[in-house]
């Protein structure tokens, strides 16, 4: 395994991180939107969202990805591997984020909301200034946890031909007939990213616990 090979895997890492970030950034607000629809109990739509979330939480990312990659062109929507990958990541992570957001919304103290009403804040102001800052805080550990889970499923993207860490490693393994070294290099790239996120989650939890204790 040559230095060029390591570099190739590193380039794959850039792709992995970029796609994950895009997935996270789009998935976060969509998850919040879905959670709000359920929280507000919008008729019919709330039920549809509930089923959507339930199905997606049960769907393996590979299966979802293959579905999107092969079926969308079939109904006339041209989609490349990268777009299919991003779409699959967003659908997957938004379902999980929705549950995290929803839990925070359900536990939001009603008094706070009424207090904001009593000082004459209108709905959107109430949400932006009172509800959102607090549920972000509560949801943060869960959201970061979901991010580390998301990174851990990205190797699937290689299946449709996205050249991420995993696909680069597989290719090198096939060329050199030595599959182990490139896989170990690949793990060495994933592990710090996931470890950083897991540590971040623990740090946030500990800081919040300390703040509550004080």
């Amino acid at each position: 395994m040559s230095a060029a090979d390591v570099l190739a895997i590193l380039q794959g890492a850039v792709v992995t991180v970029t796609l994950s970030l895009i997935g996270i950034l789009i998935g976060l607000p969509i998850g919040l939107g879905l959670a709000l629809l359920r929280w507000a109990n919008v008729p019919v739509i709330a039920r549809v969202v509930a089923v959507y979330v339930s199905v997606l939480r049960a769907t393996p990312l590979v299966t979802l990805l293959l579905l999107l990659f092969f079926a969308l062109p079939n109904v006339g929507i041209a989609i490349g591997p990268v777009s299919a990958a991003i779409l699959a990541l967003v659908m997957n992570t938004s379902a999980f984020n929705c549950e995290v957001w929803r839990a925070a919304l359900m536990n939001f103290p009603k008094e706070q909301y009424e207090a904001a009403q009593s000082v004459g804040m209108h709905a959107s102001l109430r949400f932006r200034r009172i509800v959102l800052p607090q549920i972000v805080r509560v949801s943060l550990p869960g959201l970061v946890n979901e991010m580390s889970l998301l990174i851990k499923v990205t190797p699937v993207l290689a299946v449709v031909g996205v050249v991420d860490i995993t696909r680069a490693a597989v290719r090198i393994g096939a060329e050199t007939y030595e599959p182990l070294p490139p896989f170990l290099v690949a793990i060495a790239m994933y592990a710090p990213i996931v470890f950083a996120l897991v540590s971040l989650q623990r740090f946030i939890e500990r800081r919040q616990l300390a703040a509550e204790a004080a």
């Binding site: 490693a169 599959p179 592990a191």
Partner: peptide, 17 residues
């Protein structure tokens, strides 16, 4: 360690490694 490794890579290592 396991919690930091993607499952697919781990499965690859078991099968190919």
């Amino acid at each position: 360690g396991m919690r930091c490794v993607p499952f697919l890579l781990f499965a690859y290592i078991v099968y190919y490694g």
